[in-house]
Design a binder for these strands. Structure first.
Lengths: 189, 189
DNA sequence: GTCTATACTCAGATAGAC
DNA sequence: GTCTATCTGAGTATAGAC
């Protein structure tokens, strides 16, 4: 139903706008990615764009949600360490997305920001299933069993976010290698 | 000389503007801290403010520089681990500054951003003397000697940045405790 | 050197016509 | 569902008063 009749066009247009927004962010960075420019790239007016996404912030949150969906589908069931590394390696190939994520995450520190709820939910969800995965890694002897899995996951998450900030300042930084080094410390002795 | 005659007023006004900016950011958050509002708080017009700081971004960079100066003076000579913990604990009492830092750091990912150079230099400087401190910690047996000090410092830095992002989303997070847990992994066996 | 008044440009968002 | 026209508020450049 959702892709038939009068709705099909709207759904397709939404996808088209997301793609255009991503392309503009990738090329010009988040700062200069105005609604106008994205609307131009998607072939409609700023007001037309805002018919689909109520505000600039909502549009960007939608992009991040789409990324989350893809990542979570792709790495479902993989052990936590491997999944983290794979995501980090992939991130290094999409600087625009990394910038967008960092920017929005910083803004979302303000509880009144439209993306605040999204980031809180995202953290709870991602850390939730990562803890489950990590506990399994511990049972199977891949990770030291004397560490609190929740702490390990929070640390991995914070480390990943911080490394992305460092990587934006200096793209020669190998984010995955840094994480890998940390994982060595988690190995059973 | 710099504080005599006709210049004394200017220097004092600069300080006053920095204080006002900090207060506005602390109260309304970075997002809604407009040049106009800061100018009002400092008792002058927007253009008057821009006489001292060429742009909004330069003003905010000046705030962060002032913070750096204070921190670096205060913890010069302290061992790296203790200094990091002290700074983290202090940060938890100044949410406005944490927000400002995170926001500007994210924006500065773009090389054309006015704060890009500041953050690159800051990273080089802070990590530089932290590595020196950490190497000493290693020689004196407080830290495992088989770890690359540069890696440890980069990781500590990234972890701190990431934890601040997480803390903004959930202020119940104890950033210093998280760091402390990580430091346990660095202790000699 | 310090500062104001004015005005310009561009942003995101809204109202209402089509 | 999409446009045009418009509103509001941002940052800041300029000219010039003191």
């Amino acid at each position: 139903m959702a892709t038939r009749g009068a709705y099909a066009k709207g759904v397709a247009k939404r996808e088209e706008i997301l793609e255009a927004a991503l392309a503009v962010v990738a090329e010009h960075g988040y700062r200069k990615a105005s609604v106008r420019e994205i609307a131009d790239a998607a072939g409609l007016s700023p007001a037309g764009l805002l018919h689909y996404f109520g505000s600039k912030e909502e549009l960007f949150v939608a992009i991040l949600r789409a990324r989350d969906d893809r990542d979570e589908q792709q790495y479902a069931g993989t052990d936590a360490a491997t999944a983290f590394l794979a995501v980090m390696r992939h991130n290094a190939s999409v600087p625009g997305l990394v910038q967008l994520y960092a920017q929005l995450a910083a803004e979302a520190g303000d509880p009144s920001h439209p993306a605040h709820t999204y980031f809180r939910e995202r953290t709870a969800r991602v850390e939730g299933f990562s803890v489950a995965q990590l506990a399994e890694d511990q049972r199977e002897g891949r990770i030291r069993s004397d560490l609190d899995p929740a702490w390990v996951v929070r640390t991995l998450h914070a480390l990943a976010d911080g490394l992305q900030a460092a990587w934006m300042l200096d793209p020669t930084l190998d984010m995955a290698a840094e994480i890998e080094q940390f994982l060595v410390l988690l190995r059973p002795v």
